[in-house]
Design a protein around this nucleic acid. Sequence first.
RNA 1: GCGUCCGUAGCUCAACUGGCAGAGCAGGGGACUCUUAAUCCCAAGGUUGAAGGUUCGAUUCCUUCCGGACGCACCA
Length: 572
Amino acid sequence: MGQPDPVLRFPAVHAGDGPPHRAEDRGCAAGDGRGPRPAHRGLPEGIRRPRRLRRGGGMMEERRSQPIEDRLRKLAALRELGVESYAYRFPVDHATVAARQAFEAAEAQGTLQPDGAGPRVQVAGRLVSLRAHGKTLFADLADRSGRLQLYFRQVELGPEAFRILALLDVGDWVGASGPLFRTRMGEVTLRVSAFQLLAKAVRPLPFAKEEVDEDAGTRRVHGDFADVEQRYRQRYADLAVHPEVRQVFVARARLTSALRRVLDAQGFIEVETPVLQPLYGGASARPFVTHHNALDMQLFLRIADELYLKRLIVGGMERVYEISKDFRNEGIDRTHNPEFTMLEFYQAFADYEDMMRLVEELLGAAMTEVLGAGRRAQFQEHSIDFTPPFRRISFLGALREHGQLDTDQLSDQALREQARAAGVPDADALNRPHLLDELCKTLGEPHLIQPVFVTDYPRELSPLAKPKRGDATLVERFELFVAGREIANAFSELNDPFDQRQRFEAQMVLRAGGDEEAQQLDEDYLRALEYGMPPTGGVGIGIDRLVMLLTDQPSIRDVILFPTMRPAQAGE
RNA sequence: GCGUCCGUAGCUCAACUGGCAGAGCAGGGGACUCUUAAUCCCAAGGUUGAAGGUUCGAUUCCUUCCGGACGCACCA
């Protein structure tokens, strides 16, 4: 018979990569002289399911479920048939979407064979649906680009290969090749002439089933993997069954590379500064504490990159940035994860006005990358317009506008009354700048839906920012708010070492007064400033929150692949 | 850390004021050569998150613990 071997026997390595693998390392090896057995779906004799479940031992400590037992038995059956369940490689020449496009192109050009066959392709992916029909079987194969239907026929593959097919499960990784055609139902499909098991899934994946209601044109999903806890804990399973989740992380990667492109194009240098720091600083937050054994010293995980990046400005690097994890020992909620990703960049000879324009440009690039040409993003119930320039409002102006507070006219005591009335907790313990800060958070920020730069903060709230020209009670600082959340924080950086020392000393006083988040005096940083830091604009952008905003994800855990979780119970 | 709600088969969910823990899908056996939530027949699948308590009897009521979601606090 001139039939090609129905089961692929791709060499495990490229020619020239090394010696060929032994035959038993190759793919399915079916026809081995066994008499023709009636092809049937299911487990061969002798490996049928025992009456009682086995317990313990082997790969999983937990009690094995029946589906797992069944798959393990199929694994054994495959081994008996000489089929390797965990392959080495499989050369793919088309992604599933590209295969469909290739067929449609051939169709449009009228180059299909008389029997309707289009180009031959070789694809690989996970089986996400199996529909057996006696001597034929339809399957859906999913790869990162999409899905392609596979059509297996016993008459074409032969009984031995068809028997192997019966041992495959939803979730298995499979490679397949053959010509494309269009079924009677109109779906572009691969008529499989050869296939290879690439990796057996011994644990069932919770693929959903989708029902399309012809009348309403709607689609209903059945049995989706919906337990959010399990989706976060077993992100691999979440990603495997939810292409839309994969898309969020693809968008995230594109976003960060778009930000890098903009900064690189403007002469910024990407650098890496210490995560382990003997003193932490650059933000107001409580740190994680760790210990170095050999040095026998306490170290902190950084809460910000700021002070190291500005040392580099002192060193003459002029434009630097870092995209990295920061760590803050705070609560966890919808917008906070203990480790999170921050972009910080610093530009010599620039002030915060320059930084506002650069932030607008960066957000524009990020939007184009994630959402295409438009300047509007839908985030939850808000339609947000990112057309620059963004609105600007001063910190005190925001309080006036949204809190109806003319703070110049209010004494500390009157301010405290207002704070109490607004529901600020512990209002009695706060000094004037912190009262203003709390009032702004409570009264102002929730209203800042469209992008707005809030500028010129009270000096005491910003110990690393330069005094505002013309009003020394304020500093040149802005925060960008979108959808009620802070997205960016920036200053004209304080480069006067004498002023900086005083600011640190003021923080020390707060610290002595019990403020755990007050910044520490960093003598080495002051020494750097004494060597002279040029005027500098600096910005920090919370990447996770930006990704949330542009991909419309309500929880930070939906944009972090492996969010921080408590350890699960044993056996879970 | 505090409050509210939740935890039942591999997945998604039922189970009335306490009365033998069920279904769909997945999985197993059988039928089926263009299906797509394939269909049809059959059989199976459970420490009801964990430990105590009340009760003749607990998925249900009570206590504690574990984990999660949401809200508050802290923060970006």
